[in-house]
């Protein structure tokens, strides 16, 4: 693994060392566990306060498993993982915990509470949420009456208000239609430019270059490189080129 250090004086808030996560595969009529699968084999990187770290990895590299480890959803099977005390890590999710029979208002409060905010905190911000989502009186209707667009707008508005200390963003979130897409992209850009600690996970190096100074490249559950985004990009491009060359050689 290549590690290139930059800004070593920024305080670290999250560290992974040689982390591995194993799933048991199930198949067959009686669903017996016959094979084990290591979704993450050897992941090491750290996250610093106030930075937007990019995690680059193609599909199948272990990105979604890694996100679950970071958010504390699943436990690791090897290595070590530390987070600074009282820092809440959460994936930016739209409509987290939304329940169809409840009204938009109740769902907004509940969703915020699931994300770690108090009921008072969310109720104090409900007007802002109604404004951003442009739902008006619909806020008191059960969400099974909402269109998908309305649901998305509400989900996004709530996610913005109920932000956690460390936010994980899976792929570039471009949500909603036309004008709301601009609104939401603007809000995300604002988040990235702010002092908030963010982790952007994507298979798209262009997205990562746009928003991150530092990046980590993960391939098949293993960390391949960590450092300034330019250097990681270079290593990644080289790897892709090597793969293409290999393909060309084996098929010709």
């Amino acid at each position: 693994m290549s590690v290139i250090e930059i800004e070593p004086d920024l305080k670290t808030c999250l560290t992974l060392k040689n982390v591995g996560v194993r799933y048991g595969l199930q198949h067959g009529q009686f669903r017996k566990k016959t094979k084990e699968f290591w979704a993450l084999k050897d992941i090491s990187f750290d996250l610093r306060h106030g930075e937007t770290l990019g995690i680059l990895g193609s599909n199948g590299a272990g990105k979604s498993t890694l996100l679950k480890v970071l958010a504390g959803i699943i436990s690791i099977d090897r290595g070590s993982f530390s987070v600074e005390d009282n820092m809440h890590v959460q994936l930016l999710t739209l409509g987290l915990g939304f329940e169809a029979p409840l009204s938009g208002r109740l769902n907004a409060v509940l969703s915020g509470m699931l994300l770690g905010k108090s009921r008072q905190y969310m109720e104090a911000r409900i007007d802002k949420i109604i404004e951003f989502s442009e739902l008006g009186d619909f806020i008191d209707q059960p969400i099974y009456t909402y269109s998908s667009g309305m649901m998305t707008r509400l989900g996004f508005a709530v996610a913005l208000e109920a932000q956690c200390d460390i936010l994980l963003i899976d792929e570039a979130l471009s949500v909603g239609d036309g004008h709301f897409q601009e609104k939401s992209a603007g809000a995300i850009r604002q988040l990235m430019d702010s002092q908030k600690t963010l982790v952007l996970v994507s298979h798209n190096i262009i997205e990562i270059r746009k928003f991150c100074k530092r990046a980590v490249w993960i391939d098949q559950g293993v960390t391949r490189a960590m450092g300034p985004v330019d250097e990681v990009h270079e290593l990644y491009e080289k790897h892709v080129q090597d793969k293409i060359n290999h393909l060309v050689r084996t098929t010709s």
Binding site: T15, G20, R22, G72, S75, I76, D77, R78, G79, S80, F81, S82, V83, E84, D85, N86, H88
Partner: peptide, 17 residues
């Protein structure tokens, strides 16, 4: 810092608990 060390797959605590 809170550390989750894995020994035999027993989940350790993530937040300050």
């Amino acid at each position: 810092m809170l550390t989750q060390e894995s020994t035999t797959g027993s989940p350790a605590e993530h937040f300050s608990r």
